[in-house]
Protein backbone atom coordinates (compact mmCIF):
# COMPACT_ATOMS: atom_id res chain seq x y z
CA UNK A 1 0.00 0.00 0.00
CA UNK A 2 1.34 3.40 -0.89
CA UNK A 3 2.12 5.66 2.09
CA UNK A 4 -0.57 8.19 1.15
CA UNK A 5 -3.20 5.48 1.00
CA UNK A 6 -2.11 4.08 4.34
CA UNK A 7 -2.29 7.51 5.95
CA UNK A 8 -5.75 7.98 4.50
CA UNK A 9 -6.96 4.68 5.93
CA UNK A 10 -5.52 5.49 9.34
CA UNK A 11 -7.22 8.88 9.51
CA UNK A 12 -10.56 7.58 8.37
CA UNK A 13 -10.71 4.39 10.36
CA UNK A 14 -7.90 2.65 12.22
CA UNK A 15 -6.66 5.80 13.92
CA UNK A 16 -9.84 7.85 13.72
CA UNK A 17 -9.44 11.15 15.58
CA UNK A 18 -12.68 10.75 17.49
CA UNK A 19 -12.91 7.03 18.20
CA UNK A 20 -9.27 6.17 18.71
CA UNK A 21 -7.44 9.36 19.56
CA UNK A 22 -10.47 10.89 21.34
CA UNK A 23 -9.57 14.37 20.14
CA UNK A 24 -11.74 17.28 19.15
CA UNK A 25 -14.71 16.21 21.23
CA UNK A 26 -15.80 19.78 22.04
CA UNK A 27 -16.97 20.74 18.59
CA UNK A 28 -18.22 17.23 17.92
CA UNK A 29 -20.76 17.78 20.64
CA UNK A 30 -21.51 21.42 20.05
CA UNK A 31 -22.36 21.70 16.37
CA UNK A 32 -24.00 18.37 15.61
CA UNK A 33 -27.63 19.27 16.23
CA UNK A 34 -27.86 20.71 12.73
CA UNK A 35 -26.58 19.00 9.60
CA UNK A 36 -25.78 22.14 7.62
CA UNK A 37 -23.65 23.71 10.32
CA UNK A 38 -21.93 20.38 10.83
CA UNK A 39 -20.89 20.22 7.18
CA UNK A 40 -19.55 23.77 7.30
CA UNK A 41 -17.61 22.93 10.43
CA UNK A 42 -16.17 19.77 8.86
CA UNK A 43 -14.97 21.65 5.80
CA UNK A 44 -13.41 24.31 8.02
CA UNK A 45 -11.63 21.81 10.23
CA UNK A 46 -10.39 19.72 7.30
CA UNK A 47 -9.05 22.78 5.52
CA UNK A 48 -7.32 24.15 8.61
CA UNK A 49 -5.83 20.78 9.59
CA UNK A 50 -4.56 19.99 6.10
CA UNK A 51 -3.10 23.43 5.39
CA UNK A 52 -1.73 23.74 8.92
CA UNK A 53 -0.01 20.35 8.71
CA UNK A 54 1.38 21.21 5.28
CA UNK A 55 2.80 24.54 6.44
CA UNK A 56 4.17 23.28 9.72
CA UNK A 57 5.76 20.28 8.10
CA UNK A 58 7.43 22.51 5.49
CA UNK A 59 8.66 24.85 8.21
CA UNK A 60 9.67 22.23 10.75
CA UNK A 61 13.41 22.63 10.26
CA UNK A 62 13.25 26.38 10.76
CA UNK A 63 11.27 26.45 14.00
CA UNK A 64 13.34 26.39 17.20
CA UNK A 65 12.08 23.68 19.57
CA UNK A 66 11.44 26.11 22.40
CA UNK A 67 8.88 28.21 20.60
CA UNK A 68 7.38 25.34 18.62
CA UNK A 69 4.02 25.30 20.38
CA UNK A 70 3.37 28.99 19.95
CA UNK A 71 4.41 28.92 16.29
CA UNK A 72 2.04 26.01 15.71
CA UNK A 73 -0.83 27.89 17.33
CA UNK A 74 -0.08 31.02 15.30
CA UNK A 75 0.07 29.16 11.97
CA UNK A 76 -3.14 27.30 12.75
CA UNK A 77 -4.97 30.46 13.82
CA UNK A 78 -3.91 32.05 10.54
CA UNK A 79 -5.85 29.39 8.61
CA UNK A 80 -8.80 29.57 10.99
CA UNK A 81 -8.98 33.31 10.40
CA UNK A 82 -9.20 32.61 6.66
CA UNK A 83 -12.07 30.19 7.29
CA UNK A 84 -13.80 32.74 9.51
CA UNK A 85 -13.48 35.58 7.01
CA UNK A 86 -14.75 33.41 4.14
CA UNK A 87 -17.73 32.27 6.19
CA UNK A 88 -18.59 35.81 7.19
CA UNK A 89 -18.48 36.94 3.59
CA UNK A 90 -20.35 34.10 1.91
CA UNK A 91 -22.48 32.45 4.60
CA UNK A 92 -23.22 35.18 7.15
CA UNK A 93 -26.25 33.39 8.63
CA UNK A 94 -24.34 30.19 9.32
CA UNK A 95 -21.38 32.16 10.65
CA UNK A 96 -23.69 33.81 13.16
CA UNK A 97 -25.21 30.50 14.25
CA UNK A 98 -21.85 28.84 14.71
CA UNK A 99 -20.79 31.86 16.76
CA UNK A 100 -17.63 31.22 18.71
CA UNK A 101 -17.21 27.68 17.45
CA UNK A 102 -15.48 28.79 14.25
CA UNK A 103 -12.81 30.61 16.24
CA UNK A 104 -12.61 27.61 18.49
CA UNK A 105 -11.28 25.49 15.62
CA UNK A 106 -7.93 26.93 16.74
CA UNK A 107 -8.13 25.06 20.00
CA UNK A 108 -9.55 21.93 18.42
CA UNK A 109 -7.16 19.28 19.66
CA UNK A 110 -7.09 17.54 16.27
CA UNK A 111 -5.16 20.39 14.69
CA UNK A 112 -2.47 20.57 17.34
CA UNK A 113 -2.47 16.82 17.73
CA UNK A 114 -1.73 16.18 14.05
CA UNK A 115 0.80 19.00 13.85
CA UNK A 116 2.63 17.54 16.81
CA UNK A 117 2.21 13.81 16.14
CA UNK A 118 2.51 13.69 12.36
CA UNK A 119 3.63 16.88 10.66
CA UNK A 120 6.62 17.28 12.97
CA UNK A 121 8.16 14.09 11.63
CA UNK A 122 6.94 13.75 8.04
CA UNK A 123 7.23 15.30 4.60
CA UNK A 124 4.89 18.19 3.71
CA UNK A 125 2.88 16.33 1.09
CA UNK A 126 2.23 13.35 3.32
CA UNK A 127 1.32 15.69 6.20
CA UNK A 128 -1.19 17.38 3.93
CA UNK A 129 -2.79 14.01 3.13
CA UNK A 130 -2.75 13.17 6.83
CA UNK A 131 -4.53 16.44 7.60
CA UNK A 132 -7.20 15.73 4.99
CA UNK A 133 -7.60 12.15 6.24
CA UNK A 134 -8.03 13.22 9.84
CA UNK A 135 -10.39 16.01 8.88
CA UNK A 136 -12.54 13.57 6.95
CA UNK A 137 -12.27 10.93 9.67
CA UNK A 138 -13.57 13.52 12.09
CA UNK A 139 -16.09 14.65 9.51
CA UNK A 140 -17.91 11.42 8.80
CA UNK A 141 -18.45 10.75 12.50
CA UNK A 142 -19.88 14.25 12.91
CA UNK A 143 -22.14 13.90 9.91
CA UNK A 144 -23.56 10.61 11.20
CA UNK A 145 -24.19 12.16 14.61
CA UNK A 146 -25.76 15.24 13.04
CA UNK A 147 -28.09 13.13 10.89
CA UNK A 148 -29.31 11.23 13.94
CA UNK A 149 -29.70 14.34 16.07
CA UNK A 150 -31.39 16.56 13.52
CA UNK A 151 -33.67 13.79 12.29
CA UNK A 152 -34.90 12.79 15.73
CA UNK A 153 -34.73 16.26 17.24
CA UNK A 154 -36.49 18.27 14.54
CA UNK A 155 -37.79 15.61 12.17
CA UNK A 156 -35.82 17.27 9.40
CA UNK A 157 -32.58 17.06 7.44
CA UNK A 158 -30.78 20.18 6.17
CA UNK A 159 -33.72 22.10 7.64
CA UNK A 160 -36.20 20.36 5.30
CA UNK A 161 -39.11 18.74 7.09
CA UNK A 162 -39.11 15.01 6.40
CA UNK A 163 -41.45 13.60 8.97
CA UNK A 164 -45.04 14.83 9.05
CA UNK A 165 -46.88 16.63 11.81
CA UNK A 166 -47.72 13.36 13.53
CA UNK A 167 -44.08 13.04 14.61
CA UNK A 168 -43.26 14.26 18.10
CA UNK A 169 -39.71 15.66 18.08
CA UNK A 170 -37.35 14.24 20.67
CA UNK A 171 -36.40 17.55 22.24
CA UNK A 172 -33.60 15.87 24.17
CA UNK A 173 -31.81 15.24 20.87
CA UNK A 174 -31.17 18.92 20.23
CA UNK A 175 -30.05 19.55 23.79
CA UNK A 176 -26.64 18.95 25.31
CA UNK A 177 -27.03 15.55 27.04
CA UNK A 178 -27.94 13.59 23.91
CA UNK A 179 -24.63 14.56 22.32
CA UNK A 180 -22.75 12.96 25.18
CA UNK A 181 -24.88 9.82 25.07
CA UNK A 182 -24.56 9.39 21.30
CA UNK A 183 -20.79 9.84 21.26
CA UNK A 184 -20.52 7.37 24.13
CA UNK A 185 -22.66 4.83 22.27
CA UNK A 186 -20.59 5.30 19.13
CA UNK A 187 -17.38 4.80 21.12
CA UNK A 188 -18.85 1.69 22.69
CA UNK A 189 -19.73 0.23 19.30
CA UNK A 190 -16.30 1.07 17.88
CA UNK A 191 -14.49 -0.44 20.87
CA UNK A 192 -16.54 -3.61 20.81
CA UNK A 193 -15.92 -4.00 17.09
CA UNK A 194 -12.20 -3.48 17.56
CA UNK A 195 -12.09 -5.98 20.43
CA UNK A 196 -13.84 -8.53 18.22
CA UNK A 197 -11.33 -8.00 15.42
CA UNK A 198 -8.48 -8.31 17.90
CA UNK A 199 -9.94 -11.53 19.27
CA UNK A 200 -10.06 -13.10 15.81
CA UNK A 201 -6.40 -12.47 15.04
Amino acid sequence: MSPAKKVMQEGLWTNNPIFVQVLGICSTLAVTNNLRNTLIMVVGVTFATAMGSLTLSALKDFIPRKVRMIVQVLVLSFYVIIVDILLRAYLPAASKQLGPYVGLIITNCILMGRAEAFAAANKPWLSFVDGIANGLGYGWVLVVLAIIREFLGFGSLFGLKILGDGFTPWTIMVMAPSAFFLVALALWAANTYKAKLGGKK
Binding site: M175, P177, L187, W188, N191
Partner: peptide
Protein backbone atom coordinates in the same frame (compact mmCIF):
# COMPACT_ATOMS: atom_id res chain seq x y z
CA UNK B 1 -15.52 -3.62 28.60
CA UNK B 2 -16.16 -1.57 25.45
CA UNK B 3 -17.62 1.28 27.45
CA UNK B 4 -14.75 1.65 29.94
CA UNK B 5 -12.76 4.85 30.05
CA UNK B 6 -14.01 7.62 27.79
CA UNK B 7 -17.34 5.96 26.98
CA UNK B 8 -18.69 5.71 30.49
CA UNK B 9 -17.26 9.12 31.31
CA UNK B 10 -19.22 10.69 28.46
CA UNK B 11 -22.41 9.01 29.65
CA UNK B 12 -21.79 10.32 33.16
CA UNK B 13 -21.27 13.82 31.77
CA UNK B 14 -24.51 13.41 29.84
CA UNK B 15 -26.40 12.71 33.05
CA UNK B 16 -24.74 15.67 34.70
CA UNK B 17 -25.77 17.86 31.79
CA UNK B 18 -29.34 16.64 32.19
CA UNK B 19 -29.25 17.47 35.89
CA UNK B 20 -27.93 20.94 35.12
CA UNK B 21 -30.78 21.53 32.66
Amino acid sequence: AGLKGTGITLITIGFMAMAFI
